[in-house]
Design a binder for these strands. Structure first.
Length: 258
DNA sequence: ATAGGCCTGGAC
DNA sequence: GTCCAGGCCTAT
């Protein structure tokens, strides 16, 4: 589920649920998550007040009252579920945070690939990230500069979080469709005019994303190319094609993306 | 650049 | 059973 719009929503949900509250109990319910959040970190979390929750790329940073931070990343299937401590455990609950007013936030994650990391400083665990898509510093010139030394195609480059933070596989494909750019185009060959279109397209597809969590049934009707192999391009009547780039599916229309 | 690994569920 | 999955890391 989680690309930037969904993570943004999740961070808002989390902020509304626990910002300003003290963590009174931490549970880790899956061994894989236990690797990232050992008992010592669980103890250090307990008793802290969550001062704020901010999103950076697809990471969520929970700033705590002693200057440390809990960094969450949903990977493929993570999400928060907000409930009360007396309610039944969520399906796929991998970790739970209980705060001082009886609210319980559950990290629900079927594939258990999500990560929680407690850090003295969020900079210790956050990777180097490029500009946010809506940041004014993202310009055709800045994008050209960050693509200049790359060898590969534009689509995998868009998935590199150092280029632009928060663009995932679906929105990369959708943005390239909207900008009419072939995903196989060498990244460094794109000129200012196409980069300008690409930036506008990225912003547009992210803005038009559903506000809430990912829902496959809603999404299917929204995408122009993603998961539409063999179907008709809404724009030119061509046939949407699926290829694999850097191990990931890419969907595009060979007729109008050039 | 690509392959494999992390995990599990769902579609076939 | 097999293949696929919206992410990302490590090794080659």
């Amino acid at each position: 589920m989680p690309e930037l719009p969904e993570v943004e929503h999740a961070a808002r949900v989390l902020r509304a649920a626990i910002a300003g509250h003290r963590i009174v109990r931490v549970r880790v319910l899956h061994p894989a998550l236990r690797r990232a959040l050992p008992p010592s970190a669980q103890r250090r979390l307990t008793g802290r007040v969550v001062q704020d929750v901010v999103r950076r790329g697809k990471h969520q940073v929970l700033h705590l009252d002693n200057g440390t931070a809990l960094v969450a990343h949903f990977r493929m299937t993570g999400d928060w579920a907000v409930g009360r401590v007396d309610e039944a455990r969520e399906r796929y609950a991998r970790a739970e945070l209980e705060v001082d007013d009886g609210t319980r936030v559950t990290l629900a994650d079927p594939r258990a690939l999500a990560t929680l990391t407690l850090a003295a400083d969020p900079a210790d665990v956050l990777p180097v990230l490029g500009p946010e898509p809506d940041d004014a510093s993202l310009t055709p010139a800045s994008l050209a500069a960050s693509l200049a030394r790359r060898r590969g195609a534009i689509k995998p480059a868009l998935l590199d979080q150092r280029v632009i933070a928060g663009v995932g596989n679906i929105y990369a494909a959708e943005a390239l469709w909207r900008a009419r750019i072939d995903p196989r185009t060498p990244a460094r060959s794109l000129g200012a005019a196409r980069l300008k279109r690409l930036i506008a397209a990225i912003r547009a597809v992210l803005r038009r994303a559903p506000a809430g969590r990912y829902q496959a049934d809603v999404a299917v009707s929204r995408w122009n190319v993603y998961d539409r192999e063999g179907l008709t391009c809404h724009r030119c009547g061509g046939t949407v094609k699926r290829i694999v780039q850097a191990g990931r599916s890419t969907y595009y229309c060979p007729k109008c993306q050039t």
